[in-house]
């Protein structure tokens, strides 16, 4: 990890089926590029390569291909999510992983294409309640554990009750990069 005294470094965690996979171009690189454009310093690691995330200030858990659920089978390797206190954002499969690790349910539910997301609770990440158009590419629906609050209808977005931990089932790197901007700018 590269950092100076005042640098904030975001760990972008690749959850795809293999380190350096063909899916990385689609689910990791666009998120990393959007974070860099927002001024963030980032490291990209595959979840199987990660020993200890404690040196990072923020974490983004990326999405995966619709058929790719391998990281959910390997959730034990990511149990540190239970204790993570700093800002964290799960996208698509990354959101499902947070939900699963915190004891929630991950159920089948394919959602593909542009569709409105109805935000129902104000948060620092998504702002006030309203509808936003968003790109969906996921094969799950979530049953949230008590630790997580529904922020958008149908659990399309959630946050943790007592930690800056967010999940989005839709893909903010497509048409909603302002969300990644806000995540970069939110406090450590």
């Amino acid at each position: 990890m590269r950092r100076g005294a005042d640098d904030t470094v975001i760990l972008v965690l690749d959850l795809c089926y293999r380190a350096g996979s063909l899916s990385r171009y689609e689910f990791v690189e666009p998120v990393a590029a959007a974070l860099r454009r927002a001024g963030a310093e980032i490291d990209i690691l595959h979840y199987r390569e990660l020993d200890d995330p404690s040196g990072y200030d923020k974490v983004v858990l990326c999405g995966t291909a619709l058929k790719d659920r391998r990281c959910l089978d390997d959730a034990e390797q990511l149990s540190w999510i239970q204790e993570w206190k700093r800002p964290m954002l799960g996208i698509s499969t990354g959101a499902a992983l947070i939900c699963s690790v915190l004891g929630g349910g991950v159920l089948p539910g394919v959602h593909i294409g542009m569709d409105d997301v109805r935000i129902i609770a104000e948060t620092r990440l998504l702002g006030e309640p309203r509808k936003i158009p968003a790109f969906h590419l996921h094969s799950v629906r979530l049953a949230l554990p008590s630790e997580l609050i529904e922020v958008a209808e149908k659990c399309e977005a959630f946050m943790c009750r007592d930690r800056p931990v967010y999940g989005l089932l839709f893909d903010p790197e497509v048409r909603n990069r302002w969300i990644l901007d806000r995540f970069v700018k939110c406090e450590k």
């Binding site: 689609e26 690189e29 058929k67 593909i112």
Partner: peptide
């Protein structure tokens, strides 16, 4: 193109195939 990619993603999902878009969102 969300139009193009969504439609191909749906076909792949229905056929239980993987779908890869290795240029997605590239500058």
């Amino acid at each position: 193109s969300v139009y193009q990619s969504s439609r191909i993603q749906r076909i792949c999902s229905e056929l239980d195939l993987w779908c890869f878009n290795p240029l997605w969102q590239i500058d």
